[in-house]
Design a protein around this nucleic acid. Structure first.
Length: 480
DNA sequence: TTTAGGG
DNA sequence: CCCTAAA
């Protein structure tokens, strides 16, 4: 908070910066930004950092996921003292997938015949490389982990000099950052920074710490010197996968990382909940989920670890399929009355998607066609639907209501009245086997709800025109 | 079995 | 769409 940028501006309002960055990340509108805005590397630190190979970006984009890998702060300097033509790459990527920030480092030493395609880019393309204090949640939102690790991938050294460098780096990081930088055997240098991001100070100093770390690398490493001014490119990731060049100015400082934004609130939420903040409304788990969970936990399903994708439901499906083989095409009533149905395990929606898809493709034909199926097809479809539904408690395939169906429903309601769903079904939806009376009821209810929403959001006139009551009225008029 | 209503 | 209670 007390740091002054090179341009003299204070970095004080983290929240504002967070908001600013969020907008910047979510809606990257400018194809090129000045890095002086987003990344302000301290000149010395950057100069003392390494030379970042210009060709790296092409490699990284190749390594990235389907080329949409967005990357890389790409700094080019002129020479490196002590190591001769040591060319180290320092990639700093800012990947914003909505709220996702990802910054990675990588070093390469081409001089030592180091296979850059593995050592370097394994670190770059790895989706787990994180800027200290940032982590990625599975739902895509940006979160903060209390113990995040910035991973610097280091190639397999064949030179003692670089090992010495790493040792110094480790030492300097330990002294400055107060954290360990163990050099692992597999030549991955990690920096467990243990940011307690729920604390504002630490949160504010993320970028500062990183800057200091980079400076420390430069200062502590005698081998790497700083030639002249640096220039480079930042490939700023867009959602389109298009790489946008950003002119790199001086370096990376606190502001840049503060812009890479973590709000204190989100940090607090993350730390409190232990998970990343989501604003999803919590919902009581359905009973069948509870039943499934209890079943799985009761020891009845010992093998659930092994057969994670093959749950008890699958067993039931197998049993049922056997039964169906014996029963042949005798059909629905027998199937629906099997006692095994009473004990069928209710499975939440997550796992049976595969089955659902299988069912959809195997048994349902012409689902999206507007009109009804032929009676034979409809009946067959109905049978199959029931069979799956009863056997595995499979959710019925979702069929969008077509306009003709809605019209028929309204017509039926106008004729037989609300609540006479079986009559409407029998008389108007006899050919639509997949529409049950309950479906009709639900659809009618949804229409009413929609009209109510229209009522709240729109004017009375709009409400009237969107109301099924209005359709009823029109239908009534058309009869005369 | 049908309907209503919560989810 | 699913589930369940109530009629």
């Amino acid at each position: 908070m007390d740091q002054v940028e090179e341009d003299g501006s204070f970095i004080s309002a983290l929240e504002d910066e967070a908001i600013e960055l969020e907008s910047l990340l979510v809606e990257p509108k400018n194809d090129s930004l000045s890095v002086n805005d987003a990344f302000c590397l301290d000149k010395e630190s950057l100069e003392k950092c390494m030379e970042i190979e210009g060709g790296l970006d092409s490699n990284t984009t190749q390594e990235g996921e389907d080329g949409q890998r967005l990357e890389v702060l790409d700094v080019r300097s002129h020479e490196v003292e002590g190591v001769g033509n040591l060319q180290a790459a320092n990639g700093l990527s800012c990947i914003c997938e909505d709220y996702f920030l990802d910054i990675e480092f990588a070093e390469s030493v081409p001089k030592f015949d180091y296979d850059s395609s593995e050592g370097l880019h394994s670190g770059i393309s790895g989706s787990e490389s994180l800027i200290p204090g940032f982590s990625r949640s599975y739902d895509g939102s940006l979160g903060i982990s209390e113990l995040s690790t910035a991973i610097i991938s280091v190639p397999e050294y064949q030179n003692d000099l670089l090992n010495e460098t790493i040792c110094e780096l480790h030492h300097v990081f330990s002294s400055i950052c107060g954290c360990q930088t163990p050099v692992k055997d597999e030549f991955w240098v990690t920096f467990p920074t243990s940011f307690e991001l729920q604390k504002v100070d630490n949160l504010d100093n993320i970028s500062n710490l990183l800057e200091r770390g980079i400076s420390a690398i430069g200062n502590g490493n005698d081998m790497i010197s700083t030639p002249g001014p640096t220039s480079g490119r930042i490939h700023y990731p867009l959602k389109t996968g298009q790489n946008n060049e950003v002119k790199l100015g001086q370096g990376i400082t606190k502001e840049s990382l503060a812009r890479c934004h973590v709000s204190k609130e989100s940090a607090a939420e993350a730390s409190n909940s232990g998970a990343l903040p989501t604003h999803k409304r919590l919902r009581k788990p359905p009973r069948r989920y509870i039943e499934e969970s209890s079943y799985l936990n009761s020891g009845c399903c010992r093998r659930r670890q092994e057969m994670s994708s093959s749950t008890s439901k699958d067993k039931f499906l197998r049993v049922r399929s056997l039964k169906h083989q014996h029963m042949g095409s005798r059909a629905t009533t027998l199937v629906s009355e099997e006692p095994i149905c009473e004990y069928s395990i209710q499975v939440p929606f997550g796992s049976p998607v595969r089955e659902e898809c299988r069912m959809k493709h195997a048994s349902i034909r012409g689902l999206n066609s507007d009109e009804e199926l032929s009676p034979a097809e409809s009946e067959d479809d109905f049978v199959r639907t029931i069979r799956y539904k009863k056997g595995g408690n499979q959710r019925k395939h979702h069929r969008l209501w077509t306009l003709s169906e809605v019209k028929k429903l309204i017509d039926g309601v106008s004729q037989y009245g609300v609540g006479r769903w079986t009559d409407i079904k029998r008389l108007l939806f006899s050919s639509s086997a997949h529409r049950t009376p309950v479906d009709l009821k639900d659809k009618w209810r949804n229409l009413l709800r929609a009209s109510c929403v229209q009522k709240t959001n729109k004017s009375e006139v709009e409400y009237l025109f969107f109301s099924p009551i209005f359709f009823l009225f029109c239908n009534f008029l058309l009869q005369f």
